[in-house]
Amino acid sequence: MDPAVRDYLSALVATARAVLGDDLVGAYAAGSVALDAYRPGRSDVDAALVCAAALDDGSKRALVAGLRHEALPCPARGLELVVYRREVARSGTPEPGFEVELNTGARMAFRVTWSPGERPAGDGRFWYGLDRSILHQGGYRLLGPPAAEAFADLSPADLRTLLVDALRWWLDRPTPAGDAPAPGAEDAVLGAARALVRLRHGVWLPKDAAGRRLVADGWPADLVDRSIAARAGGPPPSGPAARAFQRRVLAEVAAG
């Protein structure tokens, strides 16, 4: 693990413990850190905390105050933190089910969502079930039981439903017309690749590795290679090329 991220996560757990005490029963790194794909300067730090019971308003606010970037500087682009009750984490539910959600960082807009009901539908409600599925497979344990015990996976039907929702959400994002490079198209392509690899092979892979797995499955390499190169600073693919790829993936995922 990147040393700066390791130290930051240790401080994050200590801060959360100071606020929640014995109610903090688990802490896990997720996303690129958990999948061994963290890129300094590009990646976020994704983390999940597990609490024994529902948090009251004062505990939520104290946790946010202690973990926001101004109080605990994040060495990455930003922190994406979600807190779950233990029973929700272990339930395998496709619903958001979180206690509080915090986005904060030097290059990330500050945002707190105090309950799932405040989450705008247009921002997507599929993220949480998919993130917990990733945590079940490979969450990096910082505190508490192994991630595979702390988080239940989704049922096959719920997994497919959330993947379809995610792919449709990405397709709804605006993109420039024409064949000019479209910023963000690389993440749309490789995110779609990761969704299809999860459905086909039953494993969550980092985005670059998922793209390469689809190429090994026989998908054209040009778009995937360009998307991987774009994540290292090269030009992204065009919007129409990315959308064609996404629609092909969506058709297979939706068909099951």
Rank of each mutant, 00 (worst) to 15 (best):
A242M: 13
D179G: 01
G124M: 05
R111A: 15
G138Q: 12
V45M: 08
L35C: 04
Y128Q: 14
E99W: 00
D217Q: 09
A106Q: 10
W170G: 02
G144V: 09
A89L: 10
A148C: 15
I228W: 01
A193S: 15
A166Y: 13
K207L: 12
G256Y: 14
G41Q: 08
G144S: 11
P236V: 03
A37H: 06
A29E: 04
L102D: 03
V33C: 11
V100R: 00
D131L: 13
W170F: 13
L143D: 06
E87M: 07
D225F: 11
G124L: 07
V13N: 02
A52V: 09
A76M: 09
G211C: 12
F110V: 07
D187R: 02
L81N: 08
G256D: 12
R107L: 11
L196K: 01
L199W: 08
L162Y: 05
D123K: 12
F98H: 13
G66E: 08
R111S: 14
G31K: 03
A27Q: 05
R119Y: 13
G202K: 04
L72G: 03
G117V: 11
A29T: 06
G239L: 01
A193E: 02
E252Q: 14
P176C: 03
A251C: 05
L12C: 13
L162W: 05
V33A: 12
F151Q: 02
E186Y: 00
R111Q: 15
R200W: 12
A221E: 12
A244R: 13
P237K: 00
T93C: 04
G129Q: 07
A52E: 11
A193D: 04
T104K: 03
G218F: 13
W114S: 14
E186F: 00
L81H: 05
T15M: 08
G191K: 00
L135R: 02
A11W: 03
P96W: 00
T161Y: 05
A229S: 12
E149Q: 15
T175Y: 08
S115E: 15
G138I: 07
F245E: 00
R85T: 14
S227P: 10
H69L: 05
L190Y: 01
R226S: 03
E149I: 08
V64N: 04
C74S: 07
G202V: 10
A166I: 02
R243L: 03
D56H: 10
A157S: 13
R132H: 10
R226C: 02
P73K: 09
G97H: 10
V19S: 06
Y38L: 02
A182V: 00
N103E: 05
L72A: 06
R173E: 01
V13W: 03
S91K: 14
L196A: 05
A76I: 07
G218N: 08
A16S: 12
G58M: 08
D158K: 04
P174C: 02
W169R: 10
G97W: 05
A209K: 09
G144W: 07
W169C: 02
C74K: 09
G105Q: 10
V88I: 15
V45E: 06
S59V: 07
V5C: 05
L167M: 14
M1H: 10
R200K: 12
L24T: 04
Y128W: 10
G129L: 09
G239S: 07
V112N: 03
A76E: 08
A147D: 02
S155D: 06
H201S: 14
G66T: 12
V112M: 06
S10Y: 01
L223G: 01
